[in-house]
C-alpha cells in the first residue's frame, strides 16, 4: 500500500540535501548560498506544516501525534522485542517529527536575526541591536548541534528497524510498503506544490531576490 505521498518524500530528501548544503555553506562562509538554501527550506517547511493539517492522512499531525503515554508504551513494546511497521509515523517517531520541525523552525528564525560579523546579516538582524544579533548567532550555531543530535537519533532508529528486519528507507523512496490494514487516504500533491509555489514566491519577493540576484 502507499503510505507516503510524493510531496512528503520530496520534502524529506530535499530537507536532507538542504541541511547538508546549509552546513557546508556556513562552514565555507558562502553566505549568499546559505541564505538561498535557507529560504528554500523555509518554503518547504511551511508547506510541510500546512500539509500536516490538510494533506494526506500519514502527513497529518492528527494522525501521528499521540499522547506521550502511547509513545512511551510503544517504546516499552520495542524493548520487549515487539517491533512493528506502522502505517506512517509510529507513536514515538511522531515526537521525533515534532522535535525536528521545532528545531528547524528555531534555526530558521534565529538565522533571520544572525550576522556573520563580516559582510552578511539576516534580513531581520537590523531590527535588533548588534549584541542581540550576535547572541542569536551564537545560539544559531549551538542549536545546530542539537539538530545534528536529533538527526543522529533518527538515523539510529531507522538502522535499528532495519536490523529488526523492517525496511523504513525503501517506503521513503518509493512511497510503498507491504503492510496490512486500512490504506491511508492520499491527497492530490498538486495542492502541496501549489502552496510551495506561493510560499517560494512570497519569500523570494520578501527577502530572497537580493541574494539570488547577487549569485546569478
Amino acid at each position: 500500500m502507499k503510505i507516503w505521498d510524493s510531496f512528503i518524500r520530496v520534502y524529506h530528501w530535499s530537507q536532507v540535501i538542504l541541511l547538508g548544503s546549509l552546513w557546508y555553506t556556513a562552514e565555507e562562509g558562502l553566505m549568499e548560498w546559505h541564505f538561498s538554501f535557507a529560504y528554500l527550506l523555509m518554503a518547504f517547511l511551511i508547506t510541510r506544516i500546512v500539509w500536516g493539517f490538510i494533506g494526506s492522512e500519514t502527513a497529518k499531525f492528527s494522525h501521528f501525534v499521540t499522547t506521550p503515554k502511547k509513545a512511551f508504551n510503544y517504546l516499552i513494546a520495542i524493548r520487549n522485542s515487539k517491533v512493528s511497521h506502522s502505517i506512517g509515523h509510529n507513536p514515538a517517531g511522531g515526537y521525533m517529527v515534532l522535535g525536528l520541525f521545532s528545531l528547524l523552525t528555531f534555526q530558521l528564525l534565529t538565522g533571520l536575526f544572525s550576522n556573520d560579523d563580516i559582510l552578511s546579516e539576516g534580513p531581520l538582524a537590523s531590527l535588533v541591536s548588534y549584541e542581540t544579533s550576535s547572541l542569536l548567532t551564537s545560539i544559531h550555531h549551538q542549536s545546530f548541534n542539537v539538530l545534528l543530535a536529533f538527526i543522529g537519533l533518527h538515523i539510529a532508529a531507522v538502522l535499528f528497524y532495519r536490523f529488526k528486519g523492517i525496511n523504513l528507507l525503501s517506503p521513503m523512496l518509493t512511497g510503498v510498503a507491504k503492510l496490512t490494514g486500512t490504506t491511508p487516504i492520499m491527497k492530490h500533491v498538486i495542492i502541496a506544490w501549489g502552496i510551495f509555489a506561493v510560499m517560494s514566491l512570497f519569500i523570494y519577493y520578501l527577502w530572497a531576490n537580493e541574494v539570488v540576484s547577487y549569485l546569478f
Binding site: 562562509g29 556573520d116 560579523d117 563580516i118 559582510l119 550576535s134 548567532t137 551564537s138 550555531h141
Partner: peptide, 15 residues
C-alpha cells in the same frame, strides 16, 4: 580578502 576575515574569526575570535 574577505575569506581571511572568516578564517581568523572562526579560530581566534570569541562568538
Amino acid at each position: 580578502t574577505v575569506k581571511n576575515c572568516k578564517a581568523c574569526h572562526t579560530d581566534y575570535k570569541a562568538k
